[in-house]
């Protein structure tokens, strides 16, 4: 019974942590998109910063949302 309680507690901890990571990544993606929009609006010839932002955003999504590391070490259970 005690083990079950501990497991649930750990699950809740992990769940909250995963949710917080998702929210932080999402806010960062939104901030980068706003930055991208303003760079694109004010500077016509600045394509390199836009490429940099796009690569950073893609890396964040692939690492945190797509869980690319699961391909190398499986973890079906317990979120990320």
């Amino acid at each position: 019974m005690e083990d079950k309680g501990n497991l649930e507690e750990q699950n809740n901890g992990g769940y909250k942590e995963d949710k917080n990571i998702g929210a932080a990544v999402f806010l960062l993606l939104i901030a980068l998109t706003i930055g991208e929009f303003f760079i694109g609006s004010i500077a016509v010839d600045w394509s390199w910063p836009l490429w940099g932002i796009a690569i950073l955003k893609a890396a964040l999504i692939i690492y945190y949302f797509m869980h690319v590391t699961r391909v190398f070490g499986s973890s079906e259970e317990g979120g990320s």
């Binding site: 699950n11 949710k19 998702g22 990544v25 317990g78 979120g79």
Partner: peptide, 14 residues
Amino acid sequence: SSFFMYRADINISY
């Protein structure tokens, strides 16, 4: 939408 998909994935994982 990607953020909510992430949440759906996390929810079912737990």
